[in-house]
Amino acid sequence: MANPPNEEEFQLSLTTDTPAATDVVRDGILARVQAALGDKIVESLLKPGDDIWVRVRTESWRETAVILRDLGFSYFDFLSAIDWLPSPFGRGEDDPTEPAPVRDNTIRHGYTGGDTRIQMLARVVDPTTSMGINLKADVPDDNAHIESWTTVYAGANWHEREAWEMFGITFDGHPDLRHIYLPTDFEGFPLRKDFPLLARIVKPWPGIVDVEPMPGGDQDEPAQDGDAQ
């Protein structure tokens, strides 16, 4: 990184954590959801004017879906997972001739926290109000499996197949857990962070992203034309 232009300053000036202070609609929705789900919720988060996040217990993953569907969240948006392990390969920009750099591999969870490496992530929406909920659930580290949603939302079928082949999460009760994108004999779970992006291993990334000094440009001036990369 050649001469970073007062990066920290911009960072501070841009992150404003005070948008809409209250959000009556989402407050009401979250209250309803909390009442309906009860102690199935581990943690919930509401960002006013933005979205709702709810983390539920692993064992009540399917029940949550049933309750939310009956609560009006009948639109199945997507289902996937997040691997919170920081990638041991960084961003695939290591110089292969040098010894691998030491990386911090402590897991930092996102909103609503978490206890395990892999978390489920799904979103259901109420089509009448266009308000959705992001659902999360921990997936056990040792034996990654969770209940299937296929009997609740038919559309979850393909999404679970994708999550299965990409993250190695087994969905109990899924009728047809086959590969959807990858070849049948594919080994490994590509979207897990410890699965290397082979293209970056085979051939080192030449364009290790750097800001070259603009010809005639002032280094301290922020880019006006958006040519930020």
């Binding site: 232009p5 990066e7 960072q11 996102g110 922020p222 880019a223 958006g226 990369q229």
Partner: peptide, 11 residues
């Protein structure tokens, strides 16, 4: 926007 875009932590 800053020349090097770093996005704050969040989802």
């Amino acid at each position: 926007v800053p020349r090097i875009i770093k996005v704050p932590e969040g989802e």
